[in-house]
């Protein structure tokens, strides 16, 4: 696909992209040549997987160790009622294969860990953090900074969402710049205990998919150096300027994390004292 040649079927399927000056055949070819690892096939991961597959991202990896539960179906729209009890990666992959034969989907039914992320994530152009726990969020951040891989971060809580793009090659901050350590376990509530508006991850996940597509095609201004905050209750969007921290343990001037082996990715994701 690197010669920008799209076959007749692809010209038809992606015609609304191809006719856009900003995308065009080259942008669509970049999507078809692109690869994205989606970490989490839940609320955020569902729309990310759906829209990246529809857009024709050529290689889509999906990581998740959960099975579909009935309580997921209020918001995790890549799964269906008949999928209850099925591994999420399986039902998400089935959705992708049914939607777009141009997409090669690869599944990893596991929880991403420091010992496995390199093997799983190596070779993907972009990571999309659609996870629901801090250990995975910090692991994705640190891996992407250390390997210079762009990362889309998204998170949700009740009516609100946060999105930021981390481009380690740019000037913007990483997740650890903003939040150097994970909070004490149990201090930050999750969706299972506080609830979440079902449509919220759809909105936030679509923002993440948008950022991933922009990374792959080079279109527009990336959401780096600013944290987008969306409030569904107020129907408000605010972007907060954020800068890289010189004290950041992974991307700062005197970074202390050189390897994922140096961090304990559980509880507070801290670096043990040397």
């Amino acid at each position: 696909m690197s010669d920008l040649s799209l076959d007749a079927m692809q010209l038809d399927r992606y015609s609304r992209h191809v006719i856009m000056d900003e995308v065009g055949p080259a942008g669509q070819a970049a999507l078809l040549d692109g690869s994205v690892l989606v970490v989490g096939a839940g609320g955020l991961g569902s729309p990310v997987v759906q829209y990246l597959a529809a857009a024709g991202v050529g290689r889509l990896g999906i990581v998740d160790d959960d099975v579909v539960e009935r309580s997921n179906l209020q918001r995790q729209i890549v799964h269906a009622d008949a999928d209850v009890g099925r591994p999420k990666v399986e039902s998400a992959a089935a959705y992708v294969r049914n939607l777009n034969p141009d997409v090669t989907v690869e599944t990893y039914e596991t929880r991403l860990a420091a010992g496995s992320i390199d093997e799983i994530a190596a070779g993907y152009d972009v990571l999309c953090d659609a996870s629901d726990n801090f250990a995975t969020r910090y692991l994705c951040n640190d891996y992407c900074v250390l390997t210079d891989t762009p990362l889309s971060h998204g998170a949700i809580y009740r009516f609100e969402g946060q999105v930021i793009t981390i481009d380690p090659g740019g000037d913007g901050p990483c997740y650890r710049c903003l939040f150097p350590q994970a909070p004490e376990p149990g201090t930050v509530p999750d969706c299972a205990t506080t609830g979440v508006l079902g449509v919220l991850p759809g909105t936030v996940g679509c923002l993440q998919a948008t950022e991933v597509i922009k990374q792959l095609t080079g279109i527009g201004e990336a959401l780096t150096g600013r944290l987008l905050m969306y409030d569904a209750a107020d129907m408000s969007v605010e972007t907060v300027p954020v800068h890289r921290s010189p004290d950041c343990p992974v991307c700062g001037e005197s970074a202390t994390i050189d390897s994922l082996d140096e961090v304990t990715y559980e509880a507070r994701c801290t670096i043990p004292a040397k």
Binding site: L178, F179, D190
Partner: peptide, 21 residues
């Protein structure tokens, strides 16, 4: 971002809350 143990030297700060869902 400013470290929590640093003295306050400004009259205006922004606070971002961690969310994980």
């Amino acid at each position: 971002p400013v470290p929590e143990d640093q003295p306050v030297e400004t009259d205006e700060v922004t606070v971002l809350r961690l969310i994980k869902g």
